[in-house]
Design a protein around this nucleic acid. Structure first.
Lengths: 325, 325
DNA sequence: CTGAAAGCGCTTACAG
DNA sequence: CTGAAAGCGCTTACAG
């Protein structure tokens, strides 16, 4: 590997001159050409470590995600990556495989790697998170959840639940099965449900609540159990994946959708459009969340101020899986 | 930020002693305790740059991927991440958004970041790739395609096509529509098709070839055009996503699957199991590909030898979307 | 516009 | 077991 010293020697100038050339400092046209040529010939690539060691900062942003293989995550990452790229930052991704302990480790790891900022996608923020974040003293944007002590970027889960509630009411549904998730996940487990509850509050519907996980397989099982007991007119599912599981379970029993059973989701995943019948759901702006979180973390890194909490709007996608009653 | 010098001073020892402690060198129990305590108190985190600058190597592996939001990619990345993690390496991901030029840039970027190895997921390897790889002189594993000059890790696309061909023949299908992709993609565009062709070679089937992209939307359109002309007994699709598009198009016209039209895919994506009817397809070991590529790149980095080409096995997943004729 | 020198935070022989 | 010193490849005042 060539170093700046090699280039300097070959070009017949001092290291500092080469450095100045590299960093856009003032260099005469003649030496500029010379250095340029030598760098080309030698395939010289500056050593980022040495640069960062001196400059005391890096252009790396670390993202901590619970998994790589989910629509929400991959869309959000794609958005982050896109924005970071244009701003000349690099994305470092740490996958925690849904293990909370690894989120904490990832924070320390990122500190070691000297990332300039951290974007955290976590379902739950604990004391351990806060402590770690405090210790490493790196700017953070929390995405998908709100926390009073952290800059947060969230989707409007309450509204999502609310507009979905209004929609199914307008469609005349009265026997509702609501398949939710753990309340440890405040956004999905609580806010979404609360919005929904508010919408249906004034009406007297029969509503049953069930808890399942984010996994399709679990949703299939929960749905099967529900069907064993009786058939609601609609299954309102806290995520598109849960809705997909319910659909699968319904198909397996020959239950016709939406004639016998209507189904709705939340998220607006690609797949929700592809299945038959296409799923009525609420669109979440994951891509935009990625972009915005990237912008915000850069602002934080560069000592600009950022709102403590930003909320992204959601919209209903009315498709085929809900029948009028 | 604390440095090793701060710790040394506070512990009343030399920097080298602290360094030795950090790197597991010989240090007396007493000083060990002392240093340990100070490090705790001070939240000291060693500067990776300074370390790497001296040690001349990093524990980072760079992955270049065409996109983040595909099943194949996210599974492969998950596998890589998992394996890298246990071996104490870190994963740097560069998303090229399907733009070939960005693959080249990513190679140079990674060189600047001093990654120890590169895992490349590319549909096509050009001269520019080879040149860049040669210039930066970093070990590489190519995943998903085979190239004579690069260590490659591939799925057995030929066999995949072959077993699928055999399977549909056994099911009695004679009017086949094959929806493939560009031949620039050797694995998917050529090998998969060739395997399929070999299987049906001895039989006299009617077969029509169509070309589409990897996008579901495009597949929907191509399928609609096919249906306008006539209905084959089966649509053999080069990827699960294409199959999903064909399914969507069929549903839209009320074509019953598999009674009127059978459909098959390749890949074994999650979604293929969820749709109704569940898709008959070929399972690709993406997770394993990720793990193996990670192992291999580490071997290369550590100067161990690796096979020039490894092939991962594929298996048929016989589900509901193919009817006996 | 250019160069010599100091220093970023570590690690690594080399002595002791 | 421990410490002083040199050096990794850069950047950044400071002179000139």
């Amino acid at each position: 590997m060539k170093t700046i010293a090699d280039i300097a020697k070959l070009a017949g100038v001092a290291k500092s001159t080469v450095s100045r050339y590299l960093n856009g400092g003032s260099v005469s046209l003649q030496t500029k050409k010379k250095i340029e040529q030598i760098i080309q010939e030698q395939n010289y690539i500056p050593n980022t470590f040495a640069q960062s060691l001196k400059a005391k900062k890096t252009n790396m942003i670390g993202a901590i995600v619970p998994r790589l293989d989910s629509y929400a995550t991959s869309q959000t990452l794609t958005g982050m990556d896109k924005e970071l790229r244009v701003q000349n930052y690099h994305l470092l991704i740490s996958n925690t495989n849904q293990e909370q302990q690894r989120e904490i480790e990832a924070i320390y790891d990122f500190a070691r790697q000297k990332v300039s900022g951290i974007i955290l996608l976590a379902a739950e923020v604990t004391e351990a998170h806060l402590t770690a974040l405090k210790k490493v003293d790196i700017p953070v944007i929390l995405v998908g959840q709100k926390h009073s002590q952290l800059h947060s970027l969230i989707h409007d889960d309450f509204k999502a639940g609310y507009i979905m509630g209004k929609h199914i009411l307008e469609s005349g549904h009265q026997q509702i099965a609501y398949l939710g998730v753990t309340e440890k996940d405040e956004a999905v487990g609580i806010k979404r449900k609360q919005g929904f509850q508010k919408a249906i509050a004034e009406h007297h519907c029969e509503i049953q609540y069930y808890e399942t996980s984010f996994k399709i397989k679990d949703a299939i099982e929960v749905a099967s159990n529900i069907f064993d007991a009786s058939l609601p007119s609609i299954a309102v599912c806290a995520t598109d994946n849960i809705a997909l599981g319910v659909m699968k379970a319904a198909h397996a029993r020959g239950i016709r959708i939406p004639e016998q059973l209507s189904i709705t989701g939340f998220g607006g995943y690609d797949t929700s459009e592809i299945v038959h019948p296409a799923l009525t759901t609420v669109h979440y702006a994951y891509l935009q969340a990625g972009e915005l979180s990237a912008q915000q973390i850069i602002q934080l890194v560069e000592d600009q101020s950022v709102n403590m909490c930003s909320t992204l709007d959601v919209t209903l996608i009315d498709r085929e899986s809900v029948d009028k009653r």
